[in-house]
Design a binder for these strands. Structure first.
Length: 250
DNA sequence: CACCAGGCCGTGC
DNA sequence: GCACGGCATGGT
């Protein structure tokens, strides 16, 4: 009902995915599933099986938002100011690489690196639109090749991630802590990046990534508390607070 | 010239 | 176990 409150721009461009671009006039596009998708509202995703899954349409985000808003006045303000958010269900390998790129980096530049990898090693599925490369398409790319594309100190991490991409298939069977521990055997994947992968690819709604923004929020507004305070909406609450703090301070 | 960005690694204690 | 410096790159 309040789908008009869906903050599509924040959902797609706010830092959980780097696949999307805004084409103007409220149209967003991304290369996913081997083709270009163009959307301007959540509602139109209901009829496409891939997008239905990608946007987690079976989950009641309106109810979750109301429950989160009822937790405390700050979350109430955040939900009202940010608008309804969703947690995307993205491809694990794409998410792994994306968030390795995210460390000590900003969203705009992460998106730039993501696009460069796509143009260099992905497939052109439509003129000017490239898929993100698969692990197989990156298997022979060297650390030097990655550095030449501007990946910087993350270059060796990318090589290691490509080599170990097979473990992404094992994550489905593990609980959160074991899954995170397994992901952290990949160079460049620590607790924060592992949490992001588990949330944005594996739909683990109990993740609570602590980046520089969230550390500020927790220290200032939730001293002494941890992610258990937000249960069972840890990940979604984090996403609201992250969007909110960046909106007012970023 | 600084300082920062959806952190993590290696080292030292 | 925890603290710390370093790290590629581009923006402010």
């Amino acid at each position: 009902m309040d789908s008009v409150m869906e903050n599509l721009r924040e959902i797609l461009l706010g830092g959980q995915s780097f696949s999307w671009r805004e084409e103007g006039s409220g149209v967003f596009s991304a290369v996913l599933n081997g083709r270009v998708y163009r959307i301007s509202s959540i509602e139109e995703c209901r009829n496409d099986p891939f997008l239905y899954d990608y946007f987690d349409m079976s989950y009641d985000y309106d109810k979750a938002k109301k429950d989160i808003a009822a937790l405390d006045p700050l979350l109430k303000e955040a939900t009202e100011k940010v608008g309804t958010l969703r947690l995307l269900k993205q491809d694990p390998f794409v998410t792994l690489i994306s968030f390795i790129l995210s460390q000590n980096n900003n969203i705009k530049r992460i998106k730039g690196l993501y696009d460069r990898l796509s143009q260099k090693y992905g497939k052109e599925v439509e003129e000017g639109y490239y898929s993100f490369p698969t692990a197989d398409e990156l298997k022979d790319v060297s650390q030097e090749d990655f550095r030449a594309l501007g990946m910087g100190f993350r270059a060796p991490f990318l090589v290691d991630a490509v080599k170990k991409a097979g473990i992404l298939d094992e994550v489905w069977n593990l609980g959160f802590d074991d899954a995170a521990k397994l992901l952290m055997t990949i160079k460049g994947v620590g607790p924060k990046v592992a949490s992001c992968i588990l949330i944005f690819a594996y739909q683990r709604k109990d993740g609570f990534p602590m980046d520089v923004w969230m550390k500020r929020v927790m220290a200032k507004y939730y001293p002494g508390k941890d992610k258990s305070y937000f249960a069972p909406y840890e990940a979604l609450s984090q996403q609201y607070l992250f969007s909110w703090i960046r909106e007012i301070e970023g």
